[in-house]
Simulated scan of single mutants.
Amino acid sequence: MAETKTKKKSGLISHGVAAQNRKARFNYTIKETLEAGLVLKGPEVKSLRHGRATLTEAWAGERDGELYLFNAYIPEYQGGVLSRFEPRAPRKLLVKRKQMRQLLGAVSRDGVTLVPLDIHFNDRGMAKVQLGLGEGRNKADKRHAIAARDWQRDKARLMREKG
């Protein structure tokens, strides 16, 4: 995905990231990413535009032959709207049938997990979910990732000080 612009109008996000799962790239080795559409109701979109959603415990999977986003928390919109919705309700993901077969085949065959990485708004203002095919990391892999990240930070600091 190319560089996205974030425009804020009185606290609203019209383009850019609305929610991010920052621990996903630490807990999983992401092999492949895919962008999927997200079926939302009006108040859910308004709540997302305020940037209050969380994806830390969310996952994607199959239900009745369709792909869904489970356990994503989108809080109720407090703007005086009468229609209420369930904050952790399963939300349908829109992907092409061929892509869905490939994803679900990889999940069943390779034992990988469909992890939502972020929810963002594209240039047309449509809510999209970036899914990643993730393979779980063990403790040793996580320690290695922490050490590599620390070394990159120290290396950048040394380069700044030298020149």
Rank of each mutant, 00 (worst) to 15 (best):
G79Q: 12
V39T: 09
L114G: 06
G125D: 02
V112H: 03
H120N: 11
V95R: 06
T29I: 07
E135P: 04
Q102K: 10
Q78R: 15
A72M: 00
K92C: 02
L55S: 12
R124V: 08
H50R: 13
A89L: 00
Y73N: 14
K128H: 05
A106P: 01
L40R: 07
D64N: 14
L34P: 00
E35A: 13
T56Y: 04
P90W: 03
Y73E: 13
L103Y: 08
R97Y: 05
D118V: 02
G37T: 00
H50N: 10
Q99D: 15
G37F: 03
V115R: 12
G51E: 11
E66K: 05
G111E: 07
L117E: 13
R109G: 09
W59M: 03
G134W: 09
K92L: 00
K46T: 02
E135F: 08
Q99F: 10
E57Q: 12
V95T: 14
R52N: 11
G79C: 05
L55W: 01
Y68L: 01
E76W: 03
W59N: 08
E135S: 14
V39K: 07
Y68Q: 04
I74G: 02
D118F: 06
R109N: 12
F70Q: 08
R49V: 06
V115G: 11
V39D: 02
L133G: 07
I119T: 05
G51Y: 04
F70M: 04
L67M: 13
D110I: 04
V95W: 04
D123A: 14
E76Q: 15
Y77K: 11
D110P: 02
L93T: 06
L94I: 09
N122F: 13
R91A: 00
E66D: 15
S108V: 12
N71A: 09
T54E: 08
P43C: 07
I30A: 03
P116Y: 04
A53S: 11
Q78E: 15
L69M: 08
E86L: 10
A36I: 01
L131E: 07
L117R: 14
L38S: 00
A53D: 06
I74T: 03
R97T: 11
P116V: 01
G80C: 04
L93K: 03
G65I: 01
E86R: 10
P116M: 08
V129H: 01
N122G: 09
L104M: 15
G136W: 07
I119A: 06
Q102E: 14
G61V: 03
R88L: 14
R49S: 10
G136S: 12
A53I: 04
G51F: 07
I74A: 01
Q78C: 13
D64H: 12
Y77N: 12
R124D: 12
R63F: 05
R124M: 11
E62L: 02
K128E: 06
K46H: 08
K92W: 03
A72N: 11
R49L: 05
K31D: 09
V81N: 13
S108M: 09
G80R: 06
V45Q: 05
I30G: 02
R63M: 07
D118Y: 02
H50S: 11
L34D: 02
E66S: 14
L69C: 09
G37E: 02
A89K: 01
K31Q: 14
G132T: 08
K41H: 06
L38K: 01
E62C: 10
A58P: 07
Y68V: 00
T56L: 01
R109I: 03
G134I: 06
A72D: 06
L103E: 08
R101G: 13
V45R: 11
G111V: 05
